[in-house]
Write a protein that binds this DNA or RNA. Sequence first.
DNA 1: CTGTTAGCGCATTCAT
DNA 2: ATGAATGCGCTAACAG
Lengths: 345, 345
Amino acid sequence: MRPTVHDIAARAGVSLATVDRVLNNRPGVRGVTRDKVERAIEALGYVRDVAAANLAKSRIYPLVFILPEGDNTFMRGLAAEVEAAKARSAVERTAITVFSVPAFDPEALAAALHKARALDPAGVAVVAIDAPEVVSAVDALREDGVAVVTLVSDLPGSSRDHFAGVDNVAAGRTAGTLMGRFLGGRNGPVAIVAGSMLVRDHRDRLEGFGAAMAESAPGRRLLPVVEGHDDPAEVDRLVSNLLADQPELAGIYSLGAGNRGLIAALEKAGREKAVCAIAHELTPHSRAALLSGTLDALLNQDGGHEVRSAIRVLKARADGLSVIGAQERIRIEIFLKDNLPVDPA
Amino acid sequence: MRPTVHDIAARAGVSLATVDRVLNNRPGVRGVTRDKVERAIEALGYVRDVAAANLAKSRIYPLVFILPEGDNTFMRGLAAEVEAAKARSAVERTAITVFSVPAFDPEALAAALHKARALDPAGVAVVAIDAPEVVSAVDALREDGVAVVTLVSDLPGSSRDHFAGVDNVAAGRTAGTLMGRFLGGRNGPVAIVAGSMLVRDHRDRLEGFGAAMAESAPGRRLLPVVEGHDDPAEVDRLVSNLLADQPELAGIYSLGAGNRGLIAALEKAGREKAVCAIAHELTPHSRAALLSGTLDALLNQDGGHEVRSAIRVLKARADGLSVIGAQERIRIEIFLKDNLPVDPA
DNA sequence: CTGTTAGCGCATTCAT
DNA sequence: ATGAATGCGCTAACAG
């Protein structure tokens, strides 16, 4: 049987309350007494039963999620995952509030972070935008003792506790290597479509892609990056122009969202086989395009995993605990038509 | 505040004990009483607090893991993950026993399953071998009310509750598509090295690989499968012979373990760049070979995830509960040198 | 058949 | 500075 607070109390010759004070290092215990208790804890190899502790505390974790608006399918999926987590609130002892903010708008995001702060939550998860006002809003939360996790897009300059997302430089590099090897005999340049250079994850992917292409397909010409703001219609327009201007186009890397526009443009032009296309995020559209062959490969981050991980980390940090590292590492997934997960994502 | 058993008792006008009987559908409650209670549960939208229930029960879950012996790195990693889970036993309320059995030995495995049965555990996780005596040993456990999860290699003919592993036909197919696209201008045949056709996962991978190669590289010659029994030395020997016999060899797919042998043979022959090599399972050796370019791609299943998933499912089944489906689906991971996880696997 | 009571391991008043 | 008592939500003896 594993030791309990009673065992410690008995061994140290003190009461439960004193043991509790030491365990949660609360004030009001003499040094000698504290020592006695700590020795008992050590000797018995005590580990606190978190479930029982939470039960006694009737602990609930008020959490705030801040997500971008817009009809970007990945972000909508992420929002759905947060709703799913909300549905599990009772059993997970969480109370989740969601704030939606305009995409790519640093001021709005900073304002939302301050609004979150007013709620005095245990933790905040936020899809970050790399801007000074956002950094200071995050730092303000941290100074209030609120745990902060960045989601999908990181904020390296800030004091956030954790980033629940993928290494986007590595993701871009992966796309670059795949592109280089898949191009095969095709000649012609490769195009890059981004969402916005304002978010860290897109900048990182671009950097990685360029580096890997230089290695796996040296001398291959890369066209200047175009920004589609993760908007399907805008991406459609941009890619259609690209296809018209570049009859020799060999490949296209879409490192942001707006896959529907990319796919539509390729298929309208009848160039879906001729152009090697690599994109990000598994959605019903991108899945179908992968199966039909319009897309050649898809990189993905599991939004559900990211949300669940963010919650685990937030709860743990709120309690001052550590977490299983390996379980919180978000993988860069590569999907071909053959290894798609069974469920629609 | 969410409703508790007290609320139900009050609303239904019965005692706590009766509520408990209904909740855990234990006998000894009149139909009308049961109805009253059930209506109250429904009306209040009650959901049981599992943590509190486990606390009250002082529930622990005696679990048995049955793993193959041998110095197969993947299996050793799996064993390490089980040890890690054992270290978390206190907080996860599990009591894990591990049985090691000779690899590829159906009788030994069946015997171990019967030995496990004698321990009357709540659940058993087993790396299965596809043989009749194993099927009936598993079925016997299930009839005793013991939850059974197959790990890594499935046992489709049995009554196991769940398979914690990947779709190996799809894994083989993924390897086939990758091989077809990576071969590029190379001519010559492609070789296949298996562990043993006795285990289901190897048979499945072979099937998938053949199918995908026929699509992505039609007409490409496949050499007859050789079996290396997941033994590095034997694989080294087999592959060295293969390389000597086939000076034009374009690719090699290793669908079992024994990567060290594969890598050594390729490098000894100086053919590591000329031959496109795809293998399974991320280990320190395969990771290094991927980074050096000896291996071109690696398929992986996350052993840690599989073990943790098996435990979650076993506990849930032991309690007659369901699980979050998406969280228990094991992905077929594709690794290139660029998207390797940071930690050594 | 149904109800009472006493914990599970811990946190938290309120006394002393 | 320390201790006794009570309760978190649930289960399990034991009574009726």
